[in-house]
């Protein structure tokens, strides 16, 4: 009795898991599949599946130079915002956490501001503030980048701070300095690599948020600098098929960019990602061998020998 009970319990638990998985997959994938079908459909009236197939919509889209331009513009704005944000936030958070822990409260509050102010309100305020005076950048992408910097502040702050907390950064810095590292070297070779996994996640999240951002982009720069979301909005009324094709293309591109960023995050500075944990030891060795090119000139932090 007891013996047969256990496997049965496990089997039913397994079935439950599978059902949950199936529901989740259906929920997430079905709309995507439907969109894809619609984007590929030629004639689709009364049948379950389309009667004829066509790549017309995709061709239309990819031949429209405004689509590629909008896409590049989005990348540029997101890129500038994220680069500036990284350059400012990484040193700031590290310095505050390590040297001025009392100021962490202030940083914490600053990072909550984007939640407190709705996008439309922020946009109107920003336009009024920057449309005249010494810093008349209203309507340019610089204002948008500035706004985006604030939008991603919470993600960046949380990600960086959490990685610092999880490795006990203060002690690592102490250890590095006692081994003869200066502040900069401790930052470059110990703190920064340990922040990388958290930073990568933050950047991905921020990127996804910014890439799909419409309100601020539309209000702050609008037609003067058509980002992918504004383009999408403009064309979705034209044809359902076309806007489906836009959605699919958009999805694929974001997936590709995320993949590239994940890979870079793993390689850059030789940071092991938390996901390495469940791989066998050989995975580490491979990672180690694959990255000697990324070490800084002058000093290499790669082990010289494989055992």
């Amino acid at each position: 009795m007891l013996k047969s009970n256990k496997p049965r319990g496990r089997r039913s638990a397994g079935r439950f898991h599978r059902i949950v998985w199936a529901i989740l997959i259906i929920y997430l994938v079905l709309p995507l599949v439907a969109t894809l079908l619609y984007a590929l459909a030629g004639n689709w009236q009364t049948t379950i599946l389309p009667e004829s197939w066509t790549l017309k919509w995709f061709q239309d889209l990819l031949h429209d130079s405004r689509f590629t331009e909008a896409f590049v513009r989005s990348i540029v704005v997101c890129g500038i915002s994220l680069i500036v944000s990284t350059a400012v936030m990484v040193p700031t958070v590290i310095i505050v956490v390590l040297e001025f822990p009392k100021w962490e409260k202030v940083l914490n509050m600053l990072a909550l501001i984007p939640y407190a102010v709705p996008g439309v309100v922020a946009a109107v305020g920003l336009i009024r503030l920057y449309s005249s005076g010494p810093l008349a950048i209203s309507g340019t992408i610089w204002l948008l980048c500035g706004a985006y910097f604030v939008v991603v502040l919470p993600f960046m702050y949380q990600g960086i701070r959490n990685s610092l907390r999880s490795v006990n950064a203060v002690m690592l810095q102490d250890a590095a300095m006692l081994l003869g590292a200066g502040r900069w070297q401790a930052f470059r070779y110990v703190l920064l690599p340990n922040v990388m996994p958290g930073l990568t996640v933050s950047l991905l999240l921020s990127f996804a948020v910014l890439f799909g951002e419409f309100v601020l982009a539309n209000l702050l720069v609008g037609g003067q600098y058509e980002t992918i979301q504004i383009y999408l909005y403009r064309r979705q009324g034209e044809s359902g098929h076309l806007s489906s094709a836009v959605s699919i293309t958009y999805f694929v591109l974001v997936a590709i960019i995320s993949g590239v960023m994940l890979r870079l995050g793993k390689r850059v500075l030789n940071a092991p990602s938390p996901a390495d944990d469940d791989k066998p030891a050989t995975g580490n060795k491979k990672g180690r061998g694959a990255s000697p090119g990324t070490a800084a000139p002058g000093i290499t932090l790669q082990g010289g020998q494989e055992s």
Partner: peptide, 29 residues
């Protein structure tokens, strides 16, 4: 400055650099 003092320290919670292998940890100094 700490780095000039020529003293070594071992901490209760090890304080090994998680981003480096055993070899690189020992080689760091």
């Amino acid at each position: 400055a700490p780095k000039k003092r020529n003293v070594g320290m071992v901490f209760q919670s090890y304080a090994l650099f998680p981003n480096m292998t055993v070899y690189d940890n020992v080689a760091f100094g």
